[in-house]
Protein backbone atom coordinates (compact mmCIF):
# COMPACT_ATOMS: atom_id res chain seq x y z
CA UNK A 1 0.00 0.00 0.00
CA UNK A 2 1.25 3.46 -0.91
CA UNK A 3 0.42 6.27 1.52
CA UNK A 4 0.82 9.84 0.30
CA UNK A 5 1.73 12.22 3.11
CA UNK A 6 3.20 15.35 1.44
CA UNK A 7 3.90 16.98 4.79
CA UNK A 8 6.66 19.53 5.33
CA UNK A 9 9.24 18.36 7.87
CA UNK A 10 9.36 21.90 9.29
CA UNK A 11 5.60 22.12 9.84
CA UNK A 12 5.66 21.36 13.60
CA UNK A 13 8.49 23.85 14.14
CA UNK A 14 6.68 26.50 12.15
CA UNK A 15 3.52 26.04 14.23
CA UNK A 16 5.57 26.59 17.40
CA UNK A 17 7.24 29.62 15.80
CA UNK A 18 3.79 31.10 15.13
CA UNK A 19 2.90 30.58 18.79
CA UNK A 20 6.08 32.35 19.85
CA UNK A 21 5.18 35.24 17.51
CA UNK A 22 1.71 35.53 19.03
CA UNK A 23 3.23 35.76 22.52
CA UNK A 24 5.80 38.35 21.42
CA UNK A 25 3.20 40.45 19.62
CA UNK A 26 1.24 40.75 22.88
CA UNK A 27 4.29 42.41 24.40
CA UNK A 28 5.22 44.37 21.26
CA UNK A 29 8.66 42.78 21.37
CA UNK A 30 11.18 42.30 18.57
CA UNK A 31 13.39 39.21 18.56
CA UNK A 32 16.79 39.03 16.88
CA UNK A 33 18.17 35.59 16.02
CA UNK A 34 21.98 35.81 16.04
CA UNK A 35 23.54 33.13 13.82
CA UNK A 36 27.23 32.42 13.25
CA UNK A 37 29.85 29.68 13.41
CA UNK A 38 31.65 28.67 16.63
CA UNK A 39 34.15 31.36 17.58
CA UNK A 40 32.75 33.93 15.16
CA UNK A 41 32.36 36.36 18.07
CA UNK A 42 28.62 36.28 18.74
CA UNK A 43 28.93 36.54 22.52
CA UNK A 44 31.63 39.22 22.39
CA UNK A 45 29.50 41.24 19.94
CA UNK A 46 26.58 40.96 22.38
CA UNK A 47 28.75 41.93 25.36
CA UNK A 48 29.97 45.04 23.60
CA UNK A 49 26.49 45.92 22.29
CA UNK A 50 25.04 45.60 25.80
CA UNK A 51 27.85 47.74 27.20
CA UNK A 52 27.11 50.44 24.60
CA UNK A 53 23.30 50.30 24.68
CA UNK A 54 22.59 48.96 28.16
CA UNK A 55 21.56 52.35 29.57
CA UNK A 56 19.04 52.87 26.75
CA UNK A 57 17.76 49.35 26.01
CA UNK A 58 16.77 46.62 28.41
CA UNK A 59 18.03 43.40 26.82
CA UNK A 60 16.53 39.96 27.31
CA UNK A 61 18.93 37.26 26.12
CA UNK A 62 18.29 33.63 25.26
CA UNK A 63 21.61 31.83 25.13
CA UNK A 64 21.80 28.69 23.01
CA UNK A 65 24.66 26.34 23.75
CA UNK A 66 25.14 22.63 23.24
CA UNK A 67 26.25 21.87 26.83
CA UNK A 68 27.79 24.76 28.76
CA UNK A 69 26.53 27.89 30.54
CA UNK A 70 29.74 29.86 29.95
CA UNK A 71 28.28 32.40 27.52
CA UNK A 72 25.25 33.02 29.73
CA UNK A 73 27.54 33.59 32.72
CA UNK A 74 29.52 36.17 30.71
CA UNK A 75 26.35 38.11 29.85
CA UNK A 76 24.80 37.87 33.32
CA UNK A 77 27.80 39.79 34.65
CA UNK A 78 26.58 42.76 32.59
CA UNK A 79 23.32 42.81 34.54
CA UNK A 80 21.00 41.73 31.72
CA UNK A 81 18.26 39.11 31.85
CA UNK A 82 19.61 35.80 30.49
CA UNK A 83 17.97 32.41 30.00
CA UNK A 84 20.20 29.48 29.13
CA UNK A 85 19.09 26.81 26.66
CA UNK A 86 21.22 23.68 26.42
CA UNK A 87 20.46 21.59 23.36
CA UNK A 88 22.33 18.52 24.69
CA UNK A 89 24.01 17.75 21.39
CA UNK A 90 21.60 19.31 18.91
CA UNK A 91 23.22 21.67 16.42
CA UNK A 92 20.52 24.38 16.42
CA UNK A 93 17.76 25.90 18.49
CA UNK A 94 14.20 25.18 17.49
CA UNK A 95 10.97 27.05 18.11
CA UNK A 96 9.85 24.68 20.89
CA UNK A 97 13.03 25.35 22.89
CA UNK A 98 12.65 29.10 22.49
CA UNK A 99 8.95 28.75 23.42
CA UNK A 100 10.05 27.30 26.77
CA UNK A 101 12.64 30.02 27.35
CA UNK A 102 10.52 33.08 26.47
CA UNK A 103 8.21 32.95 29.54
CA UNK A 104 11.33 32.77 31.74
CA UNK A 105 12.25 36.29 30.61
CA UNK A 106 10.44 39.28 32.17
CA UNK A 107 8.82 40.12 28.82
CA UNK A 108 6.96 43.18 30.09
CA UNK A 109 10.17 44.84 31.25
CA UNK A 110 12.62 44.17 28.41
CA UNK A 111 12.85 46.17 25.16
CA UNK A 112 14.63 43.75 22.86
CA UNK A 113 15.09 39.96 22.91
CA UNK A 114 18.26 38.55 21.37
CA UNK A 115 18.60 34.82 20.81
CA UNK A 116 22.20 33.71 20.46
CA UNK A 117 21.92 30.53 18.45
CA UNK A 118 24.19 27.50 18.77
CA UNK A 119 27.52 28.12 17.02
CA UNK A 120 26.75 26.86 13.52
CA UNK A 121 26.36 28.55 10.15
CA UNK A 122 24.25 25.85 8.51
CA UNK A 123 21.39 24.39 10.53
CA UNK A 124 20.06 27.41 12.48
CA UNK A 125 19.17 29.12 9.19
CA UNK A 126 16.53 26.47 8.52
CA UNK A 127 14.66 26.69 11.83
CA UNK A 128 12.30 29.62 12.37
CA UNK A 129 12.23 30.49 16.08
CA UNK A 130 9.49 33.10 15.78
CA UNK A 131 12.09 35.83 15.42
CA UNK A 132 11.55 39.07 13.53
CA UNK A 133 14.97 39.11 11.97
CA UNK A 134 18.07 37.05 11.58
CA UNK A 135 21.53 38.56 11.92
CA UNK A 136 24.47 36.62 10.47
CA UNK A 137 27.81 36.92 12.25
CA UNK A 138 30.97 36.15 10.29
CA UNK A 139 34.51 36.85 11.49
CA UNK A 140 37.26 37.88 9.11
CA UNK A 141 39.36 34.97 10.42
CA UNK A 142 36.85 32.44 9.06
CA UNK A 143 37.65 33.25 5.45
CA UNK A 144 36.05 34.97 2.48
CA UNK A 145 34.45 31.83 1.10
CA UNK A 146 31.73 31.45 3.74
CA UNK A 147 28.86 33.38 2.08
CA UNK A 148 29.18 31.26 -1.08
CA UNK A 149 29.50 28.02 0.92
CA UNK A 150 26.64 28.71 3.33
CA UNK A 151 24.32 30.94 1.29
CA UNK A 152 21.05 30.29 3.12
CA UNK A 153 21.83 32.19 6.31
CA UNK A 154 23.12 35.23 4.39
CA UNK A 155 20.16 35.08 2.04
CA UNK A 156 17.68 35.07 4.93
CA UNK A 157 19.44 37.58 7.19
CA UNK A 158 18.49 41.23 7.46
CA UNK A 159 21.97 42.21 8.60
CA UNK A 160 25.45 40.71 8.59
CA UNK A 161 28.08 41.69 11.14
CA UNK A 162 31.66 41.09 9.98
CA UNK A 163 33.58 40.75 13.25
CA UNK A 164 37.23 40.90 14.33
CA UNK A 165 37.95 43.72 11.90
CA UNK A 166 41.11 44.57 13.91
CA UNK A 167 42.58 41.24 12.68
CA UNK A 168 41.94 42.03 9.00
CA UNK A 169 45.61 42.91 8.19
CA UNK A 170 46.70 39.44 9.41
CA UNK A 171 44.26 37.50 7.22
CA UNK A 172 43.57 36.92 3.52
CA UNK A 173 39.97 38.03 4.06
CA UNK A 174 38.92 40.17 1.08
CA UNK A 175 36.44 42.63 2.56
CA UNK A 176 35.34 44.15 -0.75
CA UNK A 177 34.93 40.76 -2.44
CA UNK A 178 32.83 39.52 0.49
CA UNK A 179 30.70 42.66 0.37
CA UNK A 180 30.14 41.94 -3.33
CA UNK A 181 29.16 38.33 -2.71
CA UNK A 182 26.83 39.30 0.14
CA UNK A 183 25.16 41.88 -2.11
CA UNK A 184 24.74 39.23 -4.83
CA UNK A 185 23.12 36.84 -2.34
CA UNK A 186 20.95 39.45 -0.67
CA UNK A 187 20.79 42.99 -2.10
CA UNK A 188 18.87 44.30 0.94
CA UNK A 189 21.41 42.97 3.47
CA UNK A 190 22.92 45.59 5.79
CA UNK A 191 26.61 44.88 6.37
CA UNK A 192 28.47 46.07 9.47
CA UNK A 193 32.24 45.48 9.64
CA UNK A 194 33.13 45.83 13.34
CA UNK A 195 35.79 45.22 15.92
CA UNK A 196 34.32 44.65 19.36
CA UNK A 197 37.86 44.98 20.73
CA UNK A 198 38.67 48.43 19.36
CA UNK A 199 35.07 49.60 19.01
CA UNK A 200 35.48 50.33 15.28
CA UNK A 201 32.14 50.14 13.47
CA UNK A 202 30.24 49.34 16.67
CA UNK A 203 28.43 52.69 16.66
CA UNK A 204 26.75 52.06 13.29
CA UNK A 205 25.77 48.54 14.31
CA UNK A 206 24.31 49.69 17.65
CA UNK A 207 22.31 52.47 15.97
CA UNK A 208 20.88 49.96 13.51
CA UNK A 209 20.00 47.60 16.38
CA UNK A 210 18.29 50.44 18.22
CA UNK A 211 16.24 51.24 15.10
CA UNK A 212 14.84 47.68 15.05
CA UNK A 213 13.13 48.23 18.40
CA UNK A 214 9.47 49.21 17.92
CA UNK A 215 8.69 52.85 18.51
CA UNK A 216 6.58 52.26 21.59
CA UNK A 217 9.57 50.56 23.23
CA UNK A 218 12.05 53.21 22.08
CA UNK A 219 13.62 55.16 24.89
CA UNK A 220 12.40 58.79 24.86
CA UNK A 221 15.94 60.18 24.67
CA UNK A 222 16.66 58.45 21.34
CA UNK A 223 20.24 57.83 20.31
Amino acid sequence: MKVFVVEDLRAANEEMARENRRLLERYGLVVVNLIGGPGSGKTTLLEKSIAMLGDRLRFGIIEGDIYTTRDAARLEKLGVEVVQLNTAGACHLDAAMVGKALPELPLASVDLVVVENVGNLVCPAEFDLGEDLKVAVLSVTEGSDKPAKYPLVFHEAKACVLTKLDLLPYTDFDLEAVRGELAALNPALEVFPVSARTGEGMGAWCQWLLRQVPRKRQPASGC
Binding site: V3, V5, L9
Partner: peptide, 21 residues
Protein backbone atom coordinates in the same frame (compact mmCIF):
# COMPACT_ATOMS: atom_id res chain seq x y z
CA UNK B 1 17.48 42.11 -11.60
CA UNK B 2 18.85 41.57 -8.10
CA UNK B 3 15.86 40.07 -6.28
CA UNK B 4 14.57 37.03 -8.17
CA UNK B 5 11.91 34.84 -6.63
CA UNK B 6 12.79 31.35 -5.40
CA UNK B 7 10.58 28.87 -7.24
CA UNK B 8 12.34 25.64 -6.31
CA UNK B 9 14.97 24.50 -3.83
CA UNK B 10 13.43 25.00 -0.37
CA UNK B 11 11.39 21.78 -0.48
CA UNK B 12 11.72 19.49 2.51
CA UNK B 13 8.87 17.06 2.80
CA UNK B 14 7.81 13.47 3.22
CA UNK B 15 6.19 12.65 -0.12
CA UNK B 16 4.90 9.11 0.45
CA UNK B 17 5.75 5.75 1.94
CA UNK B 18 4.88 2.18 1.01
CA UNK B 19 4.11 -0.63 3.42
CA UNK B 20 2.51 -3.98 4.02
CA UNK B 21 -0.33 -4.88 6.33
Amino acid sequence: ETAPRLVQGRELYLDYFEGED
